[in-house]
Write a protein that binds this DNA or RNA. Structure first.
Lengths: 223, 223
DNA sequence: GAGCTTATGTGATCTAGATCACAGAAGCCG
DNA sequence: CGGCTTCTGTGATCTAGATCACATAAGCTC
């Protein structure tokens, strides 16, 4: 199957010639676990299309606290915001697993966006989704307990995983990473998850959380 | 001065004919303090251009907690996100003072955006700014104390006020509203502000916070 | 298997901040 | 003016969650 055909499901509705030109400008690159793809604050030089593996975008505060902005999964491209505004990278992208990705030079890609309103609309749409997601997350951060924030994060990530045709019930995140995702300490996450396991909501493993009772989780998260 | 000329500074770089058509589609409306301009979750029917007064966009959780998404000031239009994606309103917009605003029908405005890439880029840019602002805010929420969150919020609002050619040192926000902005209780905000007043950082009044020592504030906020 | 490194559970403490409960103040408007 | 409502300060109490301090445990590599 040609690259162009592989891209099609990602860019549904994109005119054939645009798809063609896009696939022509893409190059392949692999990353090892832990490897940095780009660094917070630097000028964005490319847009990445994730084929395989997971990538986290993290921000580190001056005190050394690490917070995870988002986890990217196969089928996603990043970062839509920096592609459009050309501003500094919002976070540092780190491969969580073996990663296979395609990438395009940002300038080239932007040029193509300016010629194709359809492509621009797709990137724009991704940004708008991010705004809506961030607002929900902010609300959860402001008023809810670690237990509820965790439930929310697990469900959210689970859904994103389902969207990328992964197993929606198995989340490969360490307690540390979950903490960075919900703004809590590793210990609190650990204790809370053990509690949730006792309640039959999840099942725990080393570096993994398995969802057992989605209904209870949704109730907790306030969905 | 014609409406078109009044609009010009808001839409710097917009081609003359587009500006003309935009000014033709605008209508005037005034709101009394406390009046709702639109409601969270409803379908957006218009885009508003704020001429005078302040507008807060709030979200209310099922338990009755109120959080403020943002405060709009003269020279801003809202909400760029719902204009572009047509999704449900992100929050309920409430006039905080006497408000004078212009508004355009969303469909008409979107049609104009589709004809003018320059106009689209302006609205898009506002969305991208929102993403970056939200991310910073999320980070502050996750790891910092009420004291630091307050300093951050006061500075941020101060800057936005300066941008709308208001007095950047006088913030007309109640303790309650500041709490809704930083995710803290009214009491905590009150106590913390009194402390900051003792330290000579701010001066307090009924429904107002006056910045006295911007430098200290910036240090606290982590700027 | 020995010896790493990384991920995890869990007890003991300590504190920021929520919550409850009032009392003053400052504006309103009749 | 007196009686509203809205905003504010402040004490007392209580608890979620951070932090510190270990002890495992599970993989990995040689």
């Amino acid at each position: 199957m040609s690259l162009k055909d592989e891209l099609r499901p990602w860019f549904d509705g994109l005119p054939e010639p645009v798809l063609e030109r896009l696939s022509d400008m893409l190059k392949f690159k692999a990353f090892a676990p832990g490897e940095q793809i780009f660094v917070q604050g630097t000028e964005p030089s490319a847009i990445y299309f994730l084929i395989e593996g997971h990538v986290k975008t993290v921000r580190v505060t001056p005190e050394g606290y690490e917070s995870i902005l988002c986890v990217r999964r196969p089928g996603e491209f990043f970062c839509p915001v920096t592609v459009l505004d050309g501003g500094p990278e919002l976070g540092t992208a780190i491969a969580m697993t073996e990663v296979r990705a395609l990438y395009a030079d940002r300038d080239e890609f932007v040029a193509l966006c300016n010629e194709s309103p359809e492509l621009l609309a797709i990137v724009q749409g991704a940004c708008l989704t991010e705004v809506r997601d961030l607002i929900r997350r902010l609300e959860v951060f402001a008023f809810r307990s670690v237990r509820e924030r965790l439930a929310f994060a697990i469900l959210t990530e689970s859904r994103r995983q389902a969207d990328s045709s992964g197993n929606p019930n198995e989340l490969r995140l360490t307690r540390q990473e979950l903490g960075a995702l919900v703004g809590a300490s590793r210990e609190s996450v650990s204790r809370t998850l053990v509690q949730l396991e006792r309640d039959g909501v999840v099942e725990l493993g080393r570096g993994i959380v398995i969802i057992r009772d989605r209904r209870k989780l949704e109730k907790l998260a306030g969905f």
